[in-house]
Design a binder for these strands. Structure first.
Lengths: 131, 131
DNA sequence: CTTGACCTTCCAGTGACTGGAAGCCTTAGA
DNA sequence: TCTAAGGCTTCCAGTCACTGGAAGGTCAAG
């Protein structure tokens, strides 16, 4: 397969695939004209990475997961640990965002939203009060 | 005030304050030795930006909010609109994160997390099934 | 007079891509 | 056989909002 076909089948853009090669995820062979040739194993790897990324794992976590995937002797505990840490990070982010949303919603509800200049949102940004 | 004092009082690192000057948020005067001198208005502005950033507004949104804050003739509707758009973005992010968390939690619960190699988490990343 | 805490500028790196330029390769059609 | 389109290559720069570090000037205390 050429890179275009792999991109289509994995759902990962060609640019990103080349980037993944740069950072050592893949080592596709080249044919005599310099084009990358991908095997099914590489397509599979890319799809794996794509799924992990869409679950919010960063590149280093993907690397670790991939290494575990390819290690037939690993215990599932290692994988579970990475996933649990990641869930905790996600929970933290959710909590931060909810706090932001709640503050903002509160301010928005207090704001008339008309032609007059009084604005609790700006007042809060200006003096930190009004919550 | 020198930059160090402003940093302490606003809670914004000196590096970031210099960066904010670079991108045109501030225009502190300089004294003869080249040091920046900050007035209270600049400290106030920085604190404003700090609060807006902590509510998740990006730099351009902060710029817009600051401009509205300094425009005595604006209507609160303009501010409310920016805030509402921002809340919508936050809601979207929260929804994405919750979806990730739920998928992961589901997989984690299905994973024994022991010394054995079977792992539903890796299986899911590998073949997309198991949800 | 030295030490240490400030301050300055400039350059590079972060994460994970993404866009664009310049140029080679391949294939289908006129 | 020429040509045009599309796919492929590399390399460089930009994104966002900082952050770290180097190299050096300034200032106040002891």
């Amino acid at each position: 397969m050429n890179i275009g076909e792999v991109a289509e089948r994995s759902g990962i853009p060609t640019k990103t695939i080349r980037y993944y090669e740069d950072i050592g995820f893949l080592h596709p062979k080249r044919n005599e004209n310099g084009y990358r040739i991908f095997e099914d194993t590489e397509l599979h790897k890319l799809t794996f990475i794509g799924r992990a990324r869409s679950l919010g794992f960063n590149i280093e976590e993907c690397r670790a997961l991939l290494a575990l995937y390819e290690d037939k002797d690993r215990g599932s505990a290692d994988v579970k640990k990475i996933a649990q840490q990641h869930v905790q990070e996600i929970e933290d982010k959710i909590a931060d965002l909810i706090a932001m949303r709640d503050t903002l919603t509160h301010l928005i509800n207090a704001c008339a939203g008309d032609h007059r200049p009084d604005c609790p949102i700006l007042d809060n940004l200006s003096d930190g009060k009004g919550e």
